[in-house]
Nucleic acid binder design. Structure first.
Length: 435
RNA sequence: GCCGGGGUGGUGUAGCCUGGUUAGCACAGGGGACUGUGGAUCCCCUAGCCCGGGUUCAAAUCCCGGCCCCGGCCCCA
């Protein structure tokens, strides 16, 4: 019986790997320009770590199991917990701020859908040890520039705020603030009447519904919508947070990323550990893909993991969501997988075979991507193969030529051939390729 | 976890509704015609009904369960 892939996993073939690597390299460059440094934590952690953060319920979304020593462990569902754990373990006394990045695979036991797999990759950063708005700005600017670095321009970074949502729930006298946020988060999936109906069912009176409708109006360019927020909110805490948002967008302007920034007080980004600013990137597409990445400030998490209270902020970019969009927009480069030279032995003589290897290895030593015919197939078939691969140049090594100390260089495009000294083969190729 | 649509050689498909020849076709792969010159042609070969059970004289075809894929819901840290 054939063994199938495990549900929700994928095989990545050469063409796709080449494109992914290109994306990773672009993102890595920007991360490092911002002086974030790469870390990698273990693929699995004690399940307890994730429970501490998100509660007992997350276990059903985890790849959780017992190892042979009876330890309850889980494949990481994201990197933030592991990085916070690492910080608490060994870096509490390190100079602040700590700026780490990662590019790694994550695992979630969920139903696969468009842009959603059980194993997927994220590229993200965590900035630990600053509660300043400058830290939020730095992270959001990097978030934005990461997408720009892979050529994406048609996207927005929507910024919300958990403090304001909390204050909002308080203002309405709602106990189940999480329920309310879930509802608000779904606003875009419903029609207006349906949404109002859902709010009433939730238990809001006319005034409450009115206020929620005002809240979700607070969505758009910062200059246009933040004044509306000032009108809606009355508490000092909310006023202070709105001022912080003003500062944030002002700083983002200095980073040169204002063009992509929007305010959307209706976004909540899940309900686990974010404490104030939250954000997500959306790129319009026909693929059914929503958010292509997100993040926010989490000032309580490190304390939850047993560290001294330490502020932190970060984001993660979902690679399996970003790449289909880049592909759909034609923004990914064509990357050639073929060799530049293919060296074919003609016949089976020891001398021929050795010379074939020597020339191939000479090319490789010189930095040329060179391949060698390994199957013993006939010359005709070997050329056929080279043609299908799209190899531009072939070197033929045959007994007749070798007797005169020569080999044949063939231009596969034109079919032209010339006889060259076997010692000059590498040089000749280097000249032609212009290396 | 739930719902809808799917699963036939490596790839793309016909056949399924209406059970009955040797499961057809194209591409790809290997070899040969052509023993040192490709993309053409011809020939040969390799290779398949997702898995298990049921109904039936007979199952790719009908029924049930499972697995997987695509998409949606829940959820999305």
């Amino acid at each position: 019986m054939k063994i199938e892939r495990v549900k929700g996993t994928r095989d990545l073939l050469p063409e796709e790997m080449a494109r992914r690597r290109w994306v990773f390299e672009r993102i890595r460059e920007v991360f490092e320009n911002f002086n974030f440094q790469e870390v990698l934590t273990p693929t699995f952690e004690y399940t307890e770590l994730f429970k501490l953060r998100s509660g007992e319920e997350v276990v059903k979304q985890l790849y959780a199991f017992q190892d042979k020593g009876g330890r309850d462990v889980s494949l990481r569902p994201d990197m933030t917990s592991s990085v916070a754990r690492l910080y608490v373990n060994q870096f509490q006394n390190a100079p602040k701020p700590i700026k780490w990045y990662y590019i790694a695979n994550m695992f979630r036991y969920e139903e696969p859908q468009s842009g959603r797999y059980r194993e997927f990759w994220q590229a993200g950063v965590e900035l630990i040890g600053s509660d300043r708005v400058e830290a939020d700005a730095e992270v959001i600017a990097l978030f934005t520039q990461s997408y720009l670095a892979v050529g994406l321009e048609d996207f927005t970074v929507n910024i919300g705020d958990r403090i304001l949502l909390d204050e909002f729930a308080k203002m309405l006298g709602v106990e189940d603030d999480i329920g309310l946020m879930r509802l608000i988060d779904k606003k875009d999936k419903m029609g207006r009447d349906e949404f109002v109906g859902a709010l009433r069912e939730f238990g809001l009176d006319d005034d409450g519904v009115e206020k929620v409708l005002s809240l979700i109006e607070i969505k758009g360019l910062p200059d246009e919508v933040l004044p509306k927020a000032e009108e809606l909110f009355t508490s000092d805490k909310a006023k202070a947070e709105i001022n912080r948002l003003y500062e944030l967008v002002d700083l983002l302007d200095a980073y040169g990323v204002s063009r992509w920034v929007r305010i959307d007080l209706g976004i909540a980004r899940g309900f686990d550990y974010y404490t104030s600013v939250v954000f997500e990137a959306i790129a319009p597409n026909d693929l059914g893909i929503g958010s292509i990445g997100g993040g926010g400030r989490y000032d309580n998490l490190i304390e939850v993991f047993g560290g001294k209270p330490t502020p932190a902020t970060g984001f993660a970019i979902g690679i399996e969501r970003l790449i289909p969009i880049l592909e759909w927009k034609g923004l990914l480069p064509e990357i050639k997988l073929r060799p530049d030279v293919y060296v074919i032995p003609i016949g089976d003589e020891r001398e021929v075979r050795k010379t074939t290897i020597e020339i191939t290895q000479g090319l490789r030593d010189a930095g040329v991507r060179a391949d060698i015919e390994l199957t013993g197939r006939k010359l005709r078939k070997a050329l056929d193969y080279a043609g299908k691969l799209g190899v531009p140049y072939v070197i033929l090594v045959g007994k007749k030529d070798l007797e005169a100390g020569k080999v044949t260089l063939r231009d596969m495009e034109t079919g032209e051939q010339k006889s060259i000294e076997k010692e000059r083969a590498v040089e000749e190729i280097l000249e032609i390729l212009g290396v």
